[in-house]
Structures are given as C-alpha cells and as structure tokens.
Design a protein around this nucleic acid. Structure first.
Lengths: 202, 202
DNA sequence: CGCTCGTTTGAGAGGACTCAAGGTAGGTGG
DNA sequence: CCACCTACCTTGAGTCCTCTCAAACGAGCG
C-alpha cells in the first residue's frame, strides 16, 4: 500500500461497536474468492496477503496489509462477492466487524468516515499503479514500475535494499520467477539495479 | 465502472461551494499523466476516458466516466501526481472544484462524505477487477473477464450486444486489436460468443 | 463517390513461458 | 560443529503464441 495515508479506525471504537479480535495461523485463509463478504477487517498484528488467481492457479498479489491497515473494505461496502483471497502471511491478529456495526460507526463518527475516505483514495491510487505495472509488456518495464512504486524515498540517489524475493516480485508483476531473475540480471548489467550477494538494491 | 454505486455529489452543493462547469471538445485533454492534481471532477454531460500509457505509447483504458460519475478523486485527495490521463471522448461538460472547496463540502455534509465513501468502495472493487483482467495470460481468459465484468445482467441467458469496438476491448485488456479479433472468432466457433454482422453478442 | 473508421487476414519473428535440474544460503537439530 | 532441510535463486533448452508489420475489405456518412 501507498504509505501516504495509513489511516485506520480507532480500536476502541471498533470494539465498542461490536468488533472483535481474531487470530489466524500462518497460511490460514481469512476469506476466499467467491465468498460473500460479512466483515470489515483491520490488521492488528502480522501481515495479510491479498491476491487473486487465474485459471492456471497463477497468483497475482494485490497488496500486503500491515498492522493498522484495513482490507476487504470495498467488498463489505459494495456487498459484492470477493474477487480476491486474503491469507495470513505470518501469525496474524485482525479485528473483524460486521457491516451493520461498521455503518453505525460511520453514522456516529463523521471523522472516521472522512479518514476512511482518504484511505480509500490511497487504495484507488494504488490500484491504478498496479494496473500500470501490468501493462508494461517488457518485463523490465514492469519490474521498473514495481520498484518505483515501492521505493519509499523517491529522491534517494543511493540504491537501497528491495525487501522482496524474486518470487514476490513475480507475483506482483504477473511474471514468472525465471523471467524476473533473468531480467534483473540484465538490469544489473545495465547499471539500473545492484545485486550484491543475491540481494537486490534499487 | 461498476453500476452498483453510481453516487455523485449534488450539483447545487458543488456550485455553492465554488464549483464551476467547464466544457471540453471531443478529444480534448482534461488532465495528463504527471500533472499535479488541482481539481475534483464530476461529469455532467458526455463521456470521459481515463487511461494510462506505457513507454511504447500503448494505452490501457481504466474506465469511462459517464454523466453523474466522478473521476480523478483519488489524486485530488492524496495529492499525488496523476498516473493516468483523462480525455473527453465526446463533447463533455464537467464540474470542477478545488480540493479546498471539496474539503469544505465534506466537512459540512457528512452524508456526501458517506456517499462518496461508497462510491470509492465501488472504484476499488472495479480496480481489482481490472487487475484480474490483466493477469489472465490467455487472450480468451482476459476477454472473458472483461465481458463478464461489463455484463450488466449477470443472470441473462440470452446473449446481448457488447457495446465496445474491438479496439476498445483491446485497450481494456491490454491486448492488440488483431489478437482480440482472432480470439473472438475462436470464441464464436466455440459458442462462447455470437458475432452477427460484425457485432459482438455475449 | 470518396472518405474515415473499424474489422479482417497473412506471414514472420521475438521472447516469455514451460519444464527440468542444479546451486546457494540460512536455520535447525543432533 | 557438522549434517540436513527448506526456501530461494539460477541456468539451460525448446515450444508456443502474441505481437508486429503490411495490406485489404466492409460499413457508414457527407
């Protein structure tokens, strides 16, 4: 997710309005493509991977939700079935709250609605950036888009460590691992990235 | 866009708070990739195409904004530069309002904020669906995703006219026109779609 | 009729994917 | 301290299929 608006709903409010915490083991499914949405989720601890998969079982990562971030918001509000799955990447604690209770919060706390609106705007922006990644038909172009999107400090001249494995980059860009590896090597030769001891710097 | 939440802001409120109408000719650029966002837009008349392009100049359509729909919301709220361009597809009238004025509306009208929140949720959902289209590595899979997404009545058994040209489908799916055409012909032979007099039915 | 836009067909090349196998690092347990 | 295991990274060869470029056809419109 974009780091600009990392807004979230006050935990106390969530609990007061019927929200409850739930723990998930690593790898446990929180919800699955096709399911009917019942809850709004906010991460307290751990990390959640939200992704969708195509017919061949290839998976595209949409984003990782970290503590403080929400996920599954668009589905709970639209009521449309999940088009993505959410899986705990690490042992994770989330607060779940039903749609009805969430709507009560929105009614009683205009500032929460406002915060959420900004958070949603960031998600839309993020989604559009993801689409940008997926159209670049050159692997290099896709990877570059991905790296740029995830570069926290855009002005940083020095190359910094990219905290993703080749496989994760592949899952974000819709490429195969082998293609990512081969392309990164080419990019290293061109001086675009550094690879030191298998670690990637950009 | 998804048709579920076609919410928009009351025109009178927009005008009262400093919004103003502006006319664009067909093909005129409303904003461009890289620009700094200054306004929030709502379509009154006509149709606006929002798209981004890659280095080769290939364009990916994100969505068409019809009367009543908003666009460029995520950028005005996040303040991040445009990653897409918006162009009037037909002669178009939009209402523009500055960020400052928009924020005043949000402050004074909680229900507008709420409506916008739902509208944003639909946009996020829509964006995720677009990503789904782009990962299908078979052209048929991509086109099918696209057709399903745009099928208004999901339960409709009879095939209905698809109101998009081959080129438009190509721009939505990230494929080339020729590929779309060849794939559609194959899909016709398989009975998935109908093509009568060059018109596509699904 | 002539223009324009959309559709269609053909032939060819490039490149990402696929499958298969091997290499490397970091962590765990004896 | 070493052997093992697992997850990640790397390399190779071959196939398939989309893109590319080029050309032409069809329909709608003034």
């Amino acid at each position: 997710m974009s780091e600009v608006y990392n807004t979230f709903i006050d935990q106390n409010i969530l609990i007061t309005y019927g929200g409850f915490a739930k723990k998930y083991e690593k790898g446990e499914i929180i919800y699955q493509e096709g399911n009917t949405p019942n809850h709004f989720f906010q991460v307290i601890e751990g990390e959640v991977r939200v992704f969708c998969s195509n017919s061949e079982g290839k998976e595209l990562t949409h984003y990782y939700a970290s503590p403080g971030e929400t996920f599954g918001e668009s589905q709970i509000l639209t009521g449309l079935p999940y088009t993505c799955s959410a899986v705990a990447k690490t042992p994770t604690v989330v607060i779940k709250i039903s749609k009805e209770n969430l709507l009560n919060i929105l009614k009683d706390f205009p500032e929460v609605t406002r915060d959420l609106l900004f958070s949603f705007a960031a998600k839309i922006y993020d989604g559009a950036s993801s689409a940008r990644i997926l159209i670049g038909h050159t692997p290099e172009e896709r990877i570059l888009q991905f790296l740029d999107k995830n570069k926290t400090d855009k002005d940083q001249q020095a190359k910094i460590l990219v905290p993703f494995t080749r496989q994760q980059i592949a899952d974000f860009t819709g490429l195969r691992v082998e293609t990512v590896i081969r392309t990164l090597i080419k990019m290293k030769d061109d001086g675009v990235v550094n690879i030191i001891n298998r670690k990637l710097y950009y």
